[in-house]
Design a protein around this nucleic acid. Structure first.
Lengths: 183, 183
DNA sequence: AAAGCTTTTACGAACGTTCGTTCGCGCAAA
DNA sequence: TTTGCGCGAACGAACGTTCGTAAAAGCTTT
C-alpha cells in the first residue's frame, strides 16, 4: 500500500478518535512510524486530509443516491434501497463516515460552502423521493421535512454504534425504519 | 448577571460554534470584552468550563428521567412525557445541549469515565422503560436496543435543527416518533 | 550488469504562531 | 483596610509547516 494512502487511512482514524482540531500531525506521524516532516513529502497540509475525506464520502453518498433514483422501481422501493446502501456504508466504513459526519465544519472556506452545497443537494433529492413515495400512498408519515430529519438522524447515528461494535442487523433496522414510514 | 455566569453561557456558545478544541480562551475573553487573563479571576481552567456544561446537562436529563419514571401513569405515557421534555430541552437550549452532546469526549479522565457512567445509567433507564411499554403491548416496534438508538438519535439530532432555526413542532414530532413505536 | 542521472522519500532542525495559564500590579468597592 | 476584579506581560508547551540534506529507488544509457 502506498504511503500516501496509509496516511489518509490513519488520518481518518485519528480524526475520528480525537476530532480534527485536537488531532496533531505529530500524532499522525507517530502512528505511521514517521517523523512529522516526512508527512509533507506525500501531502500538502492537514486541511487537505480533511478535505479529501469529507469530499470523497460526500461523492460516495451522492453516487448512491444517483444509482437508487434511476432504478426502474417504485419510489418506496427506491427509499428502501437507499436506506440499505446507507446502512451498509455506515456499518462497513464507520471511520471515514464519522469524519464526514462530524468534522466537516473545520473545512476552511470556500471548501466549507462547497461541501454544504453538496449536502443540501443530497437532502433535497432525498426529500423529493420521500414526497414521491407519499404521493404514491406508500408512506403515511408526515411532514416530509421532519421524516427526512428523523431518517437522516438515525442513518448518521449508525457509525457511532458501529464504532462501539454494536452493529445492528440491516434487515431489522430497515424494517423498523419502514414501519415508522408506513404508519 | 454575574460575570462568572456570563462566562459559562458564552463558553457554551463558543464551544458550540467552533468545537471545544478549536475554541480558544482568547476568543472567549474577546466576546466578553475581557482580557484573557481576567477570565481566571472567575474560573479555574478551560476544562472546568467543559466539565460544568457537560455535567449540568447530564444531571438535567437524569432529573427529567426520574420525574417521568415516578409518575403514576402507564409506561407508554411515561415514554411520551419523556420525549416531550427531551424535545423541549433540546429546542429551548440547543447551545448547551450541543456541547453536552458533541464535546464531552474532550473531558479529561477521570471525568470522562464518570460522564459516560451517567450516560449509560440514563440509557439503561430509558431501555427498561421501553421494554415495560412493550410488555404492556403499547409498542410493537422491536428490538428495544434498536428502538432506543433510533429514538435517541432523533432526540439528540434536534439541537442541530434548533441551531438552524428549523424547530419542528413538538406535537407533530411526538406523533411521528410514537407512530413508529406503535407499529 | 554497471554506471550515471533523476525523482522520490525520510529526516533533523528550526521557523513563527498560537495555545492555556500565571504572576504581580493597580484600582475600586466594601 | 481588606477583598475582588481587570489588566499587561510573559512563560513554557504544542502547533502546522518549511528547509536543506542525504539516502533510497527507479530509469536510462552504456
Amino acid at each position: 500500500m502506498l504511503t500516501k494512502d496509509k496516511i489518509y487511512v490513519e488520518a481518518a482514524r485519528l480524526f475520528q478518535e480525537k476530532g480534527y482540531a485536537a488531532a496533531s500531525m505529530r500524532d499522525l506521524a507517530e502512528r505511521l512510524q514517521l517523523r512529522p516532516s516526512s508527512l509533507y513529502s506525500h501531502i500538502r497540509s492537514k486541511e487537505d486530509l480533511l478535505e479529501k475525506i469529507c469530499f470523497d464520502n460526500a461523492h460516495r453518498y451522492l453516487q448512491v443516491m444517483e444509482d437508487c433514483l434511476q432504478r426502474p422501481v417504485s419510489a418506496a422501493q427506491k427509499v428502501e434501497q437507499l436506506l440499505r446502501r446507507h446502512i451498509r456504508i455506515a456499518l462497513e466504513d464507520p471511520t471515514s463516515i464519522t469524519v464526514f459526519n462530524d468534522e466537516w465544519r473545520h473545512l476552511p472556506q470556500p471548501l466549507l460552502e462547497r461541501f454544504l452545497s453538496l449536502r443540501r443537494q443530497y437532502e433535497k433529492s432525498f426529500k423529493q423521493l420521500l414526497e414521491e413515495a407519499m404521493q404514491e400512498g406508500a408512506f403515511k408519515a408526515r411532514p416530509p421535512q421532519l421524516v427526512l430529519n428523523t431518517l437522516l438522524s438515525s442513518l448518521l447515528w449508525l457509525h457511532r454504534l458501529a464504532a462501539k461494535d454494536e452493529k445492528p442487523d440491516e434487515d431489522v433496522l430497515v424494517g423498523l425504519l419502514f414501519e415508522g414510514l408506513e404508519g
